[in-house]
């Protein structure tokens, strides 16, 4: 007896089975394409957010980047949480500032990652200080001098010109790992460098009226910024690097500010404001909070914003001081 077609769209069981199979195959193919595309991204873990920002510029949509430190965190003292090891275990590339800036936390994480790709000496290990022209390289080293960096001052990313060198280094390592994307990385690199050059003109014009201005800083982390933008840091609240401000040091700084009529004192997001406020109360010096890293303040979303924010904050403060 023939089946009664009560529904014009009635299909036989075998037809339904075939359609289900085709659907499953199509969905599998689609998910394979999606997962392939997702897996094509190079997983990069950086120590600092500025390295992450530069990597995003150079890598574009070919990179998935995670920065361990936050922009408002002291980069010398990041807690080496085990959760970072999970990220590192899956990374294709690890980028460090180097020069022992992260000696207290990064090596331990990398060695615990069980990830051969990112061990020192392998293709996925990137020391961003490669090729950087360094300042303050000590000719003799002793911890009597405080927490000194024996290979040179490591805060080089605070010079946008050296930032271009960092981008170049990252470009080379990304191209080694993913040669099929070399042309894209090269294009992004050139675009990054061009934008740095254009904006650097603007930043230097803004800073031009204040060239040679003497300032005080909390910690010795501004030497590259100082060199690029023509400032002169004449003293620090720390008597020696890493040693908290002492009463005698504050007295000395207060005297210096008064004698030289120093207009501003720059502080970073992760240092206490107590000692700067003591100096300000005794001298009238203006405290300017500058960021040392991308993400240091909400407005600083990328490497360019870092200099935009700092230059604007500094020039506004210096203009106000001049006006008064």
């Amino acid at each position: 007896m023939e089946p009664i077609n009560i529904n014009p769209f009635y299909y036989s069981i075998s037809q339904v089975f075939i359609m289900k199979k085709i659907t499953i195959l199509l969905l599998s193919f689609l998910f394979t394409i999606i997962s392939f595309t997702a897996e094509a991204q190079i997983r990069v873990v950086t120590t600092l957010p500025d390295l992450a920002s530069i990597t995003r510029h150079v890598g574009g949509d070919r990179v998935d980047v995670f920065a361990i430190a936050k922009g408002y965190q002291n980069p010398h003292f990041v807690d080496p949480k085990p959760s970072y090891i999970v990220k590192l275990s899956r990374a294709d590339m690890f980028i460090t500032v180097g020069l022992d800036l992260e000696i207290g936390w990064a090596p331990q994480l990398v060695q615990s990652s069980r990830n051969n790709k990112i061990q020192r000496g392998n293709a996925g290990y990137v020391d961003a200080s490669e090729g950087i022209s360094l300042l303050q390289v000590p000719s003799s080293t002793s911890r009597e001098e405080g927490d000194i960096h024996i290979y040179g001052n490591p805060h080089y990313w605070l010079d946008p010109v050296r930032g271009k060198q960092v981008a170049e280094t990252i470009y080379h390592h990304l191209s080694d790992i993913s040669p099929e994307n070399e042309a894209l990385f090269r294009k992004n690199l050139e675009s990054f460098k061009q934008e740095i050059d254009e904006r650097l003109n603007d930043w230097q014009q803004k800073m031009e009226p204040f060239k040679g201005t003497k300032i005080i800083a909390y910690h010795n982390e501004w030497v590259y910024f100082e060199e690029r933008f023509g400032l002169e840091i004449v003293g620090f609240l720390e008597p020696k690097p890493g040693i908290p401000p002492t009463p005698s040091q504050l007295v000395s700084v207060i005297q210096k500010v008064k004698n030289d009529n120093i207009p501003v004192l720059i502080n970073s997001p992760y240092f206490s404001s107590k000692s700067p406020e003591v100096v300000a109360r005794n001298t009238g010096v203006e405290i300017v909070k500058l960021a040392t890293m991308t993400g240091g303040y909400d407005e600083i979303e990328n490497y360019f914003d870092l200099f935009e924010y700092n230059i604007n904050a500094l020039t506004e403060s210096l203009k106000n001081r001049q006006a008064n």
């Binding site: 200080s129 360094l134 303050q136 390289v137 000590p138 000719s139 405080g146 010795n220 720390e238």
Partner: peptide, 13 residues
């Protein structure tokens, strides 16, 4: 913090 014991350098680090 930058005395006679330090020097600027080009790649000497």
């Amino acid at each position: 913090q930058e005395d006679q014991n330090t020097q600027s350098t080009s790649n000497s680090g």
